[in-house]
């Protein structure tokens, strides 16, 4: 079971990397490098060389390539996500290459894949630790399977909610949403934000008082 988990984690990371590279390719800056002065093959080579050096450094310092790859995927994606910021100059240019909804969807998939890969890696480590201590392979497989099922449910729910948000936030808003609708969305957003801040503070206060007792 441990080998299966680790294989899936590695495959997720590879897919996340490929998808984030695809996102990078859709940025105007990278497109100009590929088809401009840099040259197609040279730009690709330098990009992957830098990636390889980063991963080597991570392995040498932290002995962990998976987490470094995941961090690299997020960094690469940020080159495609940040240009969609309304306050940045020239933010309209990226719309020509990839629409904001598609960027959001691809970015979401990278995030989900990266989260899944990191979590599966952790489960593989737990499997190792528990097997060394107890030696009961069958029961440990049962526990890990249950954890994977629950995490998959969490990931699925997160994906559905984010897809709904993409649909509501981008498709509806950008395609003729009324002022009232926008105000409603803004109010809901602010309430959500305020509620989260309150929830976090209350929980911290509750746990602090629990500890003092």
């Amino acid at each position: 079971m441990k080998i299966k988990i680790q294989t899936v984690a590695v495959l997720s990371t590879i897919v996340a990397y490929i998808v984030s590279c695809f996102l990078l390719f859709t940025t105007p800056f990278y497109q100009s490098l590929l088809y401009g002065e840099g040259g197609f093959i040279r730009t690709l080579f330098i990009t992957h060389l830098l990636t390889g050096l980063f991963l080597l450094a991570a392995y040498y310092l932290k002995r962990s390539v998976l987490k470094a790859t995941c961090a690299l995927c997020i960094i690469i994606c940020s080159f495609a996500v940040l240009p969609h910021s309304k306050l940045l100059i020239g933010s309209d240019e990226i719309e020509k290459y990839l629409s904001v909804e598609l960027t959001a969807f691809v970015f979401l998939s990278v995030i989900i894949l990266v989260m899944f890969a990191i979590r599966l890696n952790k489960y593989a480590r737990d499997w190792n630790k528990w097997f060394d201590e107890t030696g009961d392979k069958g029961y440990i497989d049962f526990i890990i399977k249950n954890r994977i099922k629950l995490y998959s449910a969490f990931t699925a729910l997160t994906t559905i909610i984010c897809l709904i948000l993409i649909a509501v936030g981008f498709a509806v808003l950008y395609r003729g949403a009324s002022v009232l609708f926008i105000i409603l969305i803004a109010v809901i957003g602010l309430m959500l934000l305020a509620g989260c801040v309150l929830f976090v503070l209350r929980n911290i206060r509750y746990l602090n008082s629990d500890r003092k007792e």
Binding site: V81, L82, H84, S85, K86, L87, L88, V100, T103, A104, F107, L108, I111, M115, F154, L157, T158, I161, C162, L165, I166, G169, F170, G189, L192, C196, F199, V200
Partner: peptide, 19 residues
């Protein structure tokens, strides 16, 4: 909010769901 980036606003919902 600072960068007026809807994608980041959407992504911020993930830690909220985890909470």
């Amino acid at each position: 909010f600072l960068f007026a980036n809807n994608i980041l606003v959407m992504i911020s919902i993930i830690p909220l769901i985890a909470l």
